[in-house]
Design a protein around this nucleic acid. Sequence first.
RNA 1: GGCGGGGUAGCCAAGUGGUAAGGCCGAGGUCUGCAAAACCUCUAUUCGCGGGUUCGAUUCCCGCCCCCGCCUCCA
Length: 466
Amino acid sequence: MIRFLNSLSRAVEPFQPLDPAGKVVKMYTCGPTVYSFAHIGNFRTYLFEDLLQRHLEARGYTVNRVMNITDVDDKTIRNSRAADVPLAEFTEKFTAAFFEDMRTLRIKDANVYPAATDPENIAEMIVMIDFLVKKEIAYQAEDGSVYFRINRFADYGHLAHLDLDELRPSGRIQSDEYEKESLGDFALWKAWDVADGPVGWDSPWGRGRPGWHIECSAMATRILGPQVDIHCGGVDNLFPHHEAEIAQSESYTGKKFVRFWLHSAHLLVEGQKMSKSLGNFYTIRDLIGRGFTGREIRYALLRVNYRLQLNFTFDGMVEARQSLLRLDEWIHRLRDLAAEAPPDKEYPPATSDSFFAALDDDLNISAALAELFKQIRTTNQLMDANELRPGQAAALLQWWENVNQVLQIQSNEEMIPAAVEELLRQRAAARTAKDWQLSDALREKISDLGWTVKDTKDGQKPTKTR
RNA sequence: GGCGGGGUAGCCAAGUGGUAAGGCCGAGGUCUGCAAAACCUCUAUUCGCGGGUUCGAUUCCCGCCCCCGCCUCCA
């Protein structure tokens, strides 16, 4: 039985999808706002969602996941105008970059990636807002924008456990919002402003653009229906974004919008909040540029439970790299031993469920990885003692296939480049001649090309190390 | 001020009312021409601090200290 810590109840609850057949899981994940390259903090959340999806699938569920692309908001408009590029062209570039980074991190594609500006989504938003206005749950203020009247939704504040009477104005509330009836009312439709330039859509309330919160409500409802099983995002979205989504969606459909809310904690970098001014702001591209691979980044960001703040450090990246090399080594040994042998399906360690059982418990990745590494150590011991049979090794590889289906951290097998092949040939000759000096010099050269060569009783074994 | 998360070995981190998983780093060893890899041994008598409950608490209760996040559009 899978259990999740539901932000709504703040309790661990057994998970069951709404689907009467108990098979399909409807999942909505808040996606990127494509105004620049997404950073590693964003991807921490997307990686958590990927782990969630893959584990649900490992447990036999079919996940129908939607991830939205926010391609119109203050920042996209501001940055596109600053770059003097039309909005669509501007966001297109960062949307493409986003997908590229997702592939680098081996994140599984969502079933649908709706964009806020898709005509069908704008239309859906207008239908929803229109409904809310007619019910007087929303109103058009003097500035032309349409706002949601939060005191018409009794449950507002429930998810975040906020007492609205205690909300005090912060510096972020600008004086230009005085048109609202109540401080907490949020925009559903933003009236066109000169700063919006050519960006805008016609609506019953005049030209304007959608508010951020309504996007998700409209897209989730249009694609997944009035109720979704799991809705995820970063904790920062818990309030007001998700609170607003609940208010809008439930006021519109009259049904409970989301059954399980899962929120991932934020990322710190070297113990501090990531910010451009501190110079500790990293994108996936930045880390690739520093010589790290996608799977190393994936592992580093995935290995701490999503509910905990993760302190991203370069020491942590090295730890990730070293752990993965140990894993690679284990796989290579198993493959060499297994060769073409048929898997021994009766071999108990290869039938172990402990890795997945650990993930059942609110995605306890630390405990799950511990199970993996215990498996690695015990099978290495057996192989050292020559006590593992080929069929057992083959069975363990099948077990690993299943685990890797969730983790996605196996190395991509690299072809040995011709230059390395040549050096290996020369080195083999030197070793036959017992010319150790030359042998060591050639090992250095090979190392310079990014390959480590090990001498075993079966000869040289090269592995790519960077 | 309100709400929430966290303080476990050098670092990351799991965990339970019964005596501390796992990973990385480090030291020594086996193996090796030397390495590498793998394995073995060592590395927290102790889980922020002080009380309490209990036969027994890191785990439950009370108080305190420290770090971090959110409090209206930031994953």
